[in-house]
């Protein structure tokens, strides 16, 4: 969390993390399409020639004033491909909350677990405060015939009370509830830290 008292801006950084092609960028694209252009930035996408995320996607949302401050939510995605581990670590640093986008395709379970574990390793390496970061899990691509049942995915990821949401991000389903849930978790965490 960052706060600029002069500009009265409260800034939150939320990172969408997950394995390759799980739908992280699609989440941001749907948010971008759904929000009034006056209340969001342009979508920054650093992509490879093959249209895959090279470094990160970025989108900033500006909420109405709350407690005299204007909250701005910065949304970042990480590159999902395995060899961009260092880039993922960079983007994850300083996050106030994480949305883990899991791919429901039954063939992607190993990738989900590896990504989930690597995310926790990165967070732990940033210190104790980051290890306790709010995390929301989105089970994306629920429209696939090969979608793994959610209870099994939860078990595989060893989820421990994290808020979970089913989504079909490509059609926008589940995108806003996920965003609202992570924002709520981040705000609650900040309040706990302030208390």
């Amino acid at each position: 969390m960052r706060i600029n008292w002069q500009l009265r801006i409260l800034n939150l950084k939320i990172v969408y993390y997950g394995p390759a092609l799980s739908g992280k960028t699609t989440n941001l694209e749907q948010i971008y399409k759904s929000v009034d252009p006056q209340r969001r930035s342009d979508l920054v996408s650093l992509k490879t020639n093959e249209d895959r995320t090279l470094y990160f996607d970025f989108l900033q949302l500006e909420l109405g004033k709350i407690s005299g401050l204007t909250p701005q939510i910065q949304l970042y995605t990480v590159p999902g491909q395995a060899y961009y581990e260092a880039s993922r670590r960079i983007v994850l640093r300083g996050a106030d909350g994480v949305v883990f986008v899991a791919d429901s395709d039954v063939r992607q379970m190993r990738a989900n677990v590896e990504s989930w574990q690597s995310m926790h390793q990165h967070l732990a390496s940033f210190g104790p405060s980051q290890a306790a970061l709010p995390i929301v899990v989105q089970f994306n691509k629920r429209d696939l015939r090969s979608a793994m049942p959610v209870p099994i995915m939860s078990q595989l990821l060893k989820l421990n009370g994290h808020p979970c949401f089913e989504a079909v991000a490509i059609s926008g389903q589940g995108v806003l509830p996920t965003l609202k849930a992570i924002t709520k978790s981040v705000v609650s965490q900040i309040q706990r830290e302030l208390a």
């Binding site: 929000v35 009034d36 209340r39 969001r40 909420l63 109405g64 709350i66 407690s67 609202k180 709520k184």
Partner: peptide
């Protein structure tokens, strides 16, 4: 209350298009 305020703010953001 604060969580609700953020919730409403996000709903406003979504509903304006």
């Amino acid at each position: 209350n604060l969580s609700e305020l953020f919730d409403e703010a996000l709903d406003d953001l979504w509903g304006e298009t």
